[in-house]
Design a protein around this nucleic acid. Sequence first.
DNA 1: AATATTTTCGTGTACGTACACGAAAACTAA
DNA 2: TTAGTTTTCGTGTACGTACACGAAAATATT
Lengths: 381, 381
Amino acid sequence: MPNILNIAHLINIYTVFVNGNLSKTSYVMAKPDKKITIKDIALLAGVSIGTVDRVIHNRGEVSEKTRVKILRITETLNYQPDVLASTLASKKNVRFATIMPKVDKESSFWKAPLSGIEKAIKEIEHYGITNKTYFFSVFEKNSFLEVAQKALDENPDGILIAPSVQEEALQFANICDERKIPYAFFNSNIAELNQITYVGQDSIQSGIVGAKLMDYCLGTNCEILVVSIYSFLKNNTHIQNRKQGFIKYYETKSGAKKQLHSLEINSFNDGDIYSELRKTLKEKPNIKGIFVTNSRVFHVARFIESEKLSHINLIGYDLTTENIPYLEKGTISFLINQKPIEQSYSGLIALFNKIVLKKDVPKEILLPIDIVTRENLMYYE
Amino acid sequence: MPNILNIAHLINIYTVFVNGNLSKTSYVMAKPDKKITIKDIALLAGVSIGTVDRVIHNRGEVSEKTRVKILRITETLNYQPDVLASTLASKKNVRFATIMPKVDKESSFWKAPLSGIEKAIKEIEHYGITNKTYFFSVFEKNSFLEVAQKALDENPDGILIAPSVQEEALQFANICDERKIPYAFFNSNIAELNQITYVGQDSIQSGIVGAKLMDYCLGTNCEILVVSIYSFLKNNTHIQNRKQGFIKYYETKSGAKKQLHSLEINSFNDGDIYSELRKTLKEKPNIKGIFVTNSRVFHVARFIESEKLSHINLIGYDLTTENIPYLEKGTISFLINQKPIEQSYSGLIALFNKIVLKKDVPKEILLPIDIVTRENLMYYE
DNA sequence: AATATTTTCGTGTACGTACACGAAAACTAA
DNA sequence: TTAGTTTTCGTGTACGTACACGAAAATATT
């Protein structure tokens, strides 16, 4: 029989248990505030804290009988381990790896996730968590897998991936599955894998939002151009979904439909882009709105300015340093924000919750589709 | 002379110090990863950890000589106390109080902050933090101060306040100052006080955003009505700023100006509201847009539906359960979201950072002005 | 100089958990 | 039964900090 300390709450627990009426309610009603510790459980089970610890961590070396007994008590009292004490005692530090595209000179989009990573780590570094970020090039074919291998070599406890190159990322996810390393995606997703979660935007819906805005901008009798710049390089489905969503809006919309045109440009060169745009606009002079499916919208903005086409409404994606000046000047009417900072931040926090705190994490964390215009820009930067 | 343990990093520290070249850089370069503990400091200072602890907490009973010595080492090594160990050791629990309007049957706006509070507490309860929320009525004159007094009676370690009734809140803030209880504001602000921080929206700018949206919605030749419903009851400046911002946009805007009209309605009764609106719209048939300066926009939406005025563009505030159906149907074109959940969440986190972690907190945390329409609504709810 | 008083400091225990080590109990083999 | 083996468990120490208690050192008093 356990030695009963003269602590009120323990007596309460104990009474409940010797009665055989092992009821959570009755305990909780007795002392709702006091936190249950393994010491309490040990006392109630008539064993030592070491034994309780072994049961909780499935470390074996405990007879089935006492194991069940301890588990029963644990569940009944709804024991929650003290995260502070736990991480303090276990000096093991959890190491995360983040794999994402490098910031190329063509667009600064991938700068933003870096500060999200920093923010997340600052918040959880107390818990002994570190992160190492690995950058791949979306332009070099084998870059992703090379870089990913480096990350793997360090045997991290969890990996956050921006799977911009789908096939390679898919391959890598399988390797992670084999090696039982948990991983999460951000920015773009690959369906049907074992990712802990995906943090990002619903890309179809974001296209719909773009269309809605375009609709508000434009009068009744005009045409719209949807521009994709170098979309095949990137996470195709992501970009294509935006286009698809945009088109869908106008298909389902009752009332005056607008005519849509589509243009694919596979170049980052302003000259190439200008001539393509010039040609299209010449052919279809009724175009009053241009929707660009990714962050390369600033190319089109430059074109509009240089050709003095102020009557054209321009909508695109992402608050990159290239795009922002054109939003401020009004050349770009709206930018749809993907919340790149929150994406990486939430991704790491999700890994932390799952791996360290062992909490459940939703399979998809869909971030808001922010509508950004000149007037509310300052609060999103 | 302190007893040198054969731990590499300590020898490193020690070497640095006996040389007299007490340089942070040299230490950090030696062992950048190892965390400095009070034990390290004690060893280096040739005292016990108890003494170091006394110095760190300004608890006195230490000679000036060793105090300075310890402080010097502490600063040089950039000692950061371990929050986990610290909160584990001190079983004192920090108690916060939140004071905000009660959810009235007229509008569900104040439901949202409750979940923000819950979220924040869930995140920081490990640190022994609790919160008790107090509700006042904006309709009863002395309700705020009564409720606030109750909060004060519990002698909380920090108070989060939604100062919707300005004069009373001001008075109360002064009491808090006297009693040296730190406080923060959310949702609306009172300038020039000693609040730790204000979390909320820039209300002037939000009016400007509303105007911009209205501008996009409307054609060239039309008039706009600005409606304030029961605005004198609430945090006046907040509501008035929105109106002011809205007007400012059209004043500063070059090009075709639009004519603005203003309507104040001091009733929640649909009958009253309808007749006021009906009268105004009859007088000014050219009105094509209505901007409502608070969450009572659903009244106007109901009016528009019942009078079948589908040509009117309606813009207002807040994703309340009353407003959302009208946004979904399209009767309301846009709602400006104040992020009420994040407001209370960030408010409590700010208190936590300041009081518990002793971190610096910005004097103003201005949350984004979310533009919400039918198509991106689902990600803000 | 001896004692009293104050200042200064070291030691010990606690917080709740993790884990190593070894002792006791249970079981096996002879 | 006894020794050997395995299973099961208790004890001790550590993580980094907080704080009480009391001892030692410094100072004051007679």
